[in-house]
């Protein structure tokens, strides 16, 4: 990129060669760490493709029934029916294989994103300086237009599933970090203090108090990570990640309105299913854990106490 000398005279602001700098950085990284990125690419694309193969192995309808049953289990029978209809629709428009490829990509990206995000969120919740350092990075990752991440990914990983997964991780990571930090920081300080007062170690407080009480918020973060991963997974079709994104991309290049909508509606069906399922798991996790542990205690009668005269399912 040439630097026009006239710019300073026109605007009074000198040209800062940001683009050149970033390009140089990526070139350097690519030249020196190329082998490492190839390894990462192979690993994530290997995992994604294996998972996609697994998801595509059984007859689609059987899998749809299983997914619908899961929806029924975590929420209610109505949602089970809606899930069945939505997922069966994907089969009917012949996008099932693509949908499973996309689902595999979303799941792999989500798992990796959470493995990074949750510990980072915990660290940020514990230390203000970590929090201050992490926040602008998260802002950058989240607000940078999604497409922009694809270009350097292609430079580093070339075309394929690998760059798609990595770009998806970058885009989907921030809410996982933010909501983990928020959840931990929101835990009643007095309860944490009680943990200290009775001699708990920081680890015991984290496991026994902070994580359980922050769980609903962390699960909201997981839900957000999955939804962002799905939206990015479709965009990742542009770099050859395949799946529904690939179908959307080819519909654009061929101006195929029909294919575009069929793939698009399949994304919608998959999104609704993933969103409602994870939201139900997240929102109910704490309540259910309480109810189960309470019920177990009563059934086993180990504590030798009789249950309080309160309906078992009452929410608090």
């Amino acid at each position: 990129m040439s630097v026009p000398t006239s710019q300073f005279e026109e605007t009074g602001v000198p040209r800062v060669p940001v683009g050149d700098g970033i390009e140089a950085v990526f070139d350097w990284v690519n030249e020196n760490l190329g082998a490492f990125f190839d390894l990462v690419s192979d690993a994530v694309s290997g995992a994604t493709e294996t998972l996609a193969d697994v998801l595509n192995a059984p007859t689609p309808l059987i899998l749809v029934v299983l997914f619908a049953a899961l929806a029924w289990l975590v929420k209610n029978w109505k949602f089970g029916v809606v899930s069945f209809i939505g997922l069966a629709f994907i089969i009917s428009v012949d996008q099932w294989e693509n949908a499973m490829t996309t689902l595999a990509l979303v799941l792999v990206a989500t798992v990796i994103a959470l493995v990074i995000a949750v510990p980072l969120g915990l660290a940020a919740a514990r230390s203000d300086s970590v929090s201050n350092a992490v926040r602008p990075v998260m802002d950058l990752m989240q607000t940078m237009p999604a497409f922009v991440w694809l270009v350097p990914m292609v430079t580093l990983f070339s075309i394929g599933v690998g760059p798609g997964v990595v770009a998806t991780i970058i885009f989907a990571l921030p809410p996982g970090v933010r909501l983990t930090e928020l959840g931990i920081r929101q835990v009643d300080a007095e309860v944490v203090e009680a943990g200290h007062a009775f001699g708990s170690s920081p680890g015991q407080i984290l496991r026994g108090i902070q994580l359980p009480l922050a769980l609903p918020t962390i699960m909201a973060g997981v839900n957000q990570v999955i939804m962002l991963a799905l939206s990015m997974a479709v965009i990742a079709g542009l770099v050859g990640a395949g799946g529904l994104g690939g179908a959307v991309t080819s519909s654009i290049s061929q101006l195929d309105i029909g294919l575009g909508f069929e793939a698009g509606l399949s994304v919608v069906a998959l999104a609704i299913y993933l969103d409602r399922t994870t939201a139900a798991v997240g929102g109910g996790a704490a309540t259910r854990a309480r109810r189960i542990s309470g019920a177990l205690g009563r059934i086993l009668g180990r504590s030798g106490t009789t249950a309080a005269p309160v309906p078992a399912g009452s929410r608090t």
Partner: peptide, 26 residues
């Protein structure tokens, strides 16, 4: 310090500071 807190001195808090996800017995 944690040993002293476990063995010598306990505390009761203004807003109870109970674990909402644990039973009264726990």
């Amino acid at each position: 310090l944690r040993r002293v807190r476990r063995e010598k001195v306990s505390m009761v808090f203004q807003h109870f500071a109970l674990l909402p996800h644990r039973t009264v017995g726990e």
